[in-house]
Design a protein around this nucleic acid. Structure first.
Lengths: 207, 207
DNA sequence: TTCAAAGTGGACTGTCCAGTCCATTTCTTA
DNA sequence: TAAGAAATGGACTGGACAGTCCACTTTGAA
């Protein structure tokens, strides 16, 4: 019952919280562009304007920083997707979401891939801790999609026998695979084809 | 027209070719398990029983080795998939292929992901050379699938208006996304759901 | 106003790593 | 069988990196 067994979070002042956020955001950008292994703490120091001791003041080590980067990217994706799925009420809304995904992919130049997907590929086999965290992030993302599909069921737009969860997982897979291929081919077409397959899979279960 | 502008391949004796193959295979295993950045040349030396000078005798540098690893993994995947698609003649055969993919994924323990997909995620944004190589590998894979679908069109099992190429790309995306999620969740279910979506997408276009 | 905690600066360490270099052994062929 | 080419061994270098350490500055609450 020793409260120090795991040192509890220290109290962060507003300045400290801002610095910490600056570091995580800088690290997230760099890692998104290059991958975990190609980003050194010196890179993060330069990009965030923080010193070495600040990094170790706010994070246990590089893994600890990466943990927070995963959290940040997951929260960003959930936020964006929740906008589309929380009020999902029609197939037209689904297509609007499709367009938004493709537009976003085009805007990145299709270069970076999915922030979560890249991290999952990088870390799932390297760190059980990271794998679990990413698994939960994907699960949360899937639940956002599932909630939208369930809503369509309730509204009588999808057949009641539809497995919303399974469908959400398949849609998520289409997103991930589509983005990966688009990143490799530098063209949004694969993502579009994958999303169209996913949408037609959903529409096939329309009432 | 200087023939030395790019030093042509040196003549390899059987022993040399065997050593080179041993090195590439060892590197492929390590990179598959850990990713390019987490494999050092010393690791490859140890795993292949080769010395440093051998590595630099057979490859320009680490990038050159990675290039050959990509080639090896692509050829392995093409070979496996060609078995299923070259003679693709029915929806039953398509389902058999699905089972084979899932079984393979289970056999790896769902740990490693797709050798090409992992490399693409790792390298597409880091090296234009590697990106092109991986793009071509995916294209070749897609063409194997497309050829099978075209065959089914010719046999009158798929409607003639079907876009075999687009469908092949979508199927490939489902594979990649499914494998990535399965690797993250350590469970083959996501891959199964993604493949089922892809198959039902194809079957929806049956005559 | 004071002082402890929070925050910051940056030099330093030990290790790891890609790539170089040169000496030696094994093969091939003339 | 001699000589040149191919193959191999392994020490060495320069730089990059995660993580440590200690001194200094700022903040905020009593």
């Amino acid at each position: 019952m020793d409260r120090n067994a795991k040192p509890q979070k220290r109290a962060l002042t507003p300045r400290g919280a801002a610095t910490k956020r600056r570091i995580v955001e800088a690290a997230a950008s760099l890692i998104y562009a290059r991958g975990v292994e190609r980003v050194s703490l010196d890179d993060v120091m330069e990009a965030s304007g923080a010193s070495k001791s600040q990094l170790y003041h706010y994070f246990d080590n590089k893994d600890g920083l990466v943990r927070e980067v995963i959290e940040l990217q997951a929260s960003r994706i959930l936020q964006t997707n929740a906008l589309h799925f929380e009020r999902l009420d029609s197939f037209a809304a689904l297509h609007a979401w499709r367009e938004a995904m493709v537009a976003a992919n085009r805007a990145w130049g299709g270069v970076g891939g999915c922030p979560l997907g890249s991290l999952a590929n990088d870390l799932a086999a390297q760190s059980e801790q990271a794998r679990r965290q990413l698994d939960q992030s994907f699960a949360a993302w899937g639940m956002v999609i599932e909630a939208g599909l369930s809503r369509m069921k309730e509204m009588g737009q999808l057949r009641s026998c539809v497995d919303a969860r399974g469908m959400a997982v398949a849609v998520l897979a289409a997103i991930q695979g589509g983005i990966l291929l688009s990143k490799t081919t530098r063209n949004s077409e694969p993502l579009e084809l994958a999303l169209d397959m996913a949408l037609s899979h959903i529409e096939r279960h329309a009432v």
